[in-house]
Write a protein that binds this DNA or RNA. Sequence first.
DNA 1: CTGAAAGCGCTTACAG
DNA 2: CTGAAAGCGCTTACAG
Lengths: 358, 358
Amino acid sequence: MKKLTIKEIAQLANVSEGTVDRVIHNRSGVSERTRQKIQQIIDRHEFSLNPIASALASSRQYTIGVLIPRKDIRSDYWEMPYRGIEAGWARIKDFGFSVRYFLYDQFDEASFDTCFDQLVEAAPDGVILAPIFAREAAQKIPLLEERQIPYLFMDTQLVGFESISFVGQDSFEGGVVAARLMQLFLSEKGKSVILQTRQNISNHDAIFKRIGGYQSFFATNYPQNEVLTLFVADTAAIPEMQSQIRAFLEAHPAVEGVFVPSSRISTFSGFFPNRIALIGFDTTTSNINALERGEIKFLISQKSFDQGFQAVLLLFDYLLYKKIPRRQYFSDIEIVLKENIKYTSFANNNSKIFPDFK
Amino acid sequence: MKKLTIKEIAQLANVSEGTVDRVIHNRSGVSERTRQKIQQIIDRHEFSLNPIASALASSRQYTIGVLIPRKDIRSDYWEMPYRGIEAGWARIKDFGFSVRYFLYDQFDEASFDTCFDQLVEAAPDGVILAPIFAREAAQKIPLLEERQIPYLFMDTQLVGFESISFVGQDSFEGGVVAARLMQLFLSEKGKSVILQTRQNISNHDAIFKRIGGYQSFFATNYPQNEVLTLFVADTAAIPEMQSQIRAFLEAHPAVEGVFVPSSRISTFSGFFPNRIALIGFDTTTSNINALERGEIKFLISQKSFDQGFQAVLLLFDYLLYKKIPRRQYFSDIEIVLKENIKYTSFANNNSKIFPDFK
DNA sequence: CTGAAAGCGCTTACAG
DNA sequence: CTGAAAGCGCTTACAG
């Protein structure tokens, strides 16, 4: 069936193009009778707008506000979602979309509040946000809902909000995968330890769930492999960290593996003897280096570039085509080791999805 | 700097819009003097075409020809690249792009030839092809080059051709990753075996390279872990395969792992005792089932959905924006196990990149 | 070699 | 409540 134009629909209905336009966009000022007549013809012919022509004619501008942490000296994790967003934007900018960033400090709740206010002030048409501070986010999000600004969670999913979707990893299952891999390195009754930092290093919720997944895997499948916990402040002086770890290992000689549920594994990986298997999260630059030095067995990657890319496209489809996204989009739980890192990091850094992104 | 329109460029140059258009598109019929004047203004203002308006005005139609194997009863591998292509197409169809498929039988060289001829006959504007039959492809590809039809290799890379790019996995490194994972299951002097089928099961080149990567890893890093080879016809009767395998294991009691470099691992996985670790390629439905039954330790995925998606976008950018792609885009070497399969297969099947693809 | 005009399929004021 | 006209930023004949 040939695709009809508005003009043709108008002719079939004996009305003007303007009236058809009103019906299509649910604008007021059309008699019920006319509306129905036109709607019928639209339905019968499965008419749909040509988004190209629509974008050109309306010259409507859309702004997407992005509220995520900025890249930090201690972790360049947030570089990747940022790049993914940029790559996604490059694919939609011709439709009049622009992106405004509000980058907060992932170690500073107050900066989240400030950036959020600026975001609201800017009155974007849609928002992508990583609400890593659950409490602050819960306070601020109503500002978006009042203004009817659609928003989409990335990285961290908060429950009880009317976000149009969530893009990120299933953290619990990420912990399960880490445990499954760790188990490969444990002897019959070998123990592993979850290394936690005392510091508030962003994203509590994800870390909490990863730990849950890890423990649950062992409790269910390998209860004989005990799981211990060790707290080390990642802000401590190096000798202090070292001696803490040494003391722990002496006290627990059966420990054969260390699981770091945050992205901070490279801070500690040099302090462990080779016989101990290390598994951690996130392909930050320093983690990749530690992996390549052989200090780490596996990293689990969030594919955060893809998350950013996808979040933008979902919001684009929502705003432009009124396409309702699914409630959540879980990104791959990618297992990274020395031998395949160059392909994943390549993918992230050089953006295979949107090639030649600068 | 505000983005100028053709009209404004024309005014600055004291010419008509049509003339500016001719310069932009390198059309003939413009005096050198005028061309230079206009080009200067274009450069100075960093003018670039509005692709939306361009697509609308020209109502130029592009056809992408796709030459890949069709889904087969024995392996649904090619379902995924197909879906990726469909998802990519959905993102570009508004620009006047359509896709025509020429699906050949991956077990029948002659069907490749026939489909290739039909493809050429259809005179597409660009081509995505998986040249799994190297010899036939080498004979047919000149037909595209004669007609100056740009083409892009997917899945299999042939050398010595002027393809605009390649999207696929680095098969050698895929084999290396398989070996690295296998090594985790081997004891000090444990042996592993490469299980090859005699049958021509598509994609020889990839399988050959995977075997090379696998062997090279062990030869370099773990020479004490011997690598054997076993041939089993995957078309044989089940009892025959079983007895062949049983005899082999009896003759080689030190075998602790089996590597299947093709996508056919699920054909054999039920015949091995649990103590033997199996590692194979490709997340076909039957392989996923075997993984979930616990018969297989790891699968290595090609992310073939993504390959199709990306191939389409690369060709789109090439045809519409004249953007030259890189020579090759290696897709992720994804490690899949029971615990993360639902996220990767979810990604593939439900298309997280292009959400809600039917 | 160059320009003026019509048109791509919509949207946006404006008039009635 | 409805229509006629102009315009979005290009491209395409056609005329000269």
